[in-house]
């Protein structure tokens, strides 16, 4: 009996690892705790939001309607992590520049200093198009409230350089507002993998069904 138990555990492990291996059929999971409601599985979705971007245009869920987008949290006067994450975001921006289904959304967590005008100047320095990459500000509560949905840390911490605690994480959201992948946005190798995940998502959601 014990033997049977062990071998079924072993079998399960083998199957689990097979599922993880990098086969062409690999598919992205939907992240977060799912619930079963009336027999249907319900996945967590990103909540409704409304922010203002570097061109002082409203950015809300509808701005990404039907498209995938990459999320991060940053602030302009961030001495260490943010420039590195921005370098990586710019790689993603360049790689998917001509693909209309991939957009970027960076939330400033320094709502006091990062005004629309400051974000506008920053966007110019990054040399980016607003329609592709929104840098947003908004109410502090609302910005910080997004952190949970995106599995990211974003809060004030005066003991840290720059005065904020944040993870430098990049998050991939699909057209159904489901979180599908994330990575450490300071690590080029992780970001390579993340871009592969974006490709995978594009294939899943936008290539014509055969």
């Amino acid at each position: 009996m014990k033997d049977l138990l062990y071998s079924s555990i072993l079998l399960a492990m083998v199957m689990a690892t097979a599922g993880c291996s990098d086969t062409p059929e690999r598919s992205l999971p939907i992240l977060g705790n799912r619930e079963v409601v009336n027999g249907d599985t319900v996945y967590p979705t990103v909540q409704a939001f409304s922010f203002v971007d570097q061109d002082s245009q409203t950015v809300n869920n509808a701005s990404f309607d039907g498209e995938a987008y990459v999320v991060d949290f940053f602030f302009i006067h961030c001495p260490t992590i943010c420039p590195k994450v921005k370098v990586q975001c710019k790689r993603i921006y360049d790689r998917f520049l001509d693909n209309p289904h991939v957009l970027l959304l960076s939330h400033s967590i320094d709502v006091r200093n990062d005004t629309v005008a400051a974000l506008h100047r920053y966007a110019e320095k990054l040399e980016i198009k607003t329609a592709k990459w929104h840098l947003v500000t908004g109410s502090e509560d609302e910005i910080y409230g997004m952190g949970d949905d995106y599995f990211s840390v974003a809060r004030k911490d005066t003991t840290l350089p720059g005065g904020f605690d944040h993870s430098g994480r990049l998050i991939l959201v699909d057209k159904n507002r489901h979180v599908r992948s994330f990575c450490d946005g300071t690590d080029p190798k992780e970001v390579d993998r993340f871009m592969d995940d974006i490709d995978l998502l594009l294939k899943e959601q936008y290539s014509p069904k055969k």
């Binding site: 420039p83 110019e124 320095k125 040399e127 980016i128 300071t186």
Partner: peptide, 16 residues
């Protein structure tokens, strides 16, 4: 350095 100044040393936009 590469995290900011980029692998090839080219920097980023007019930020770095």
């Amino acid at each position: 350095c590469a995290g900011c100044h980029v692998e090839g040393g080219t920097g980023l936009g007019t930020l770095i």
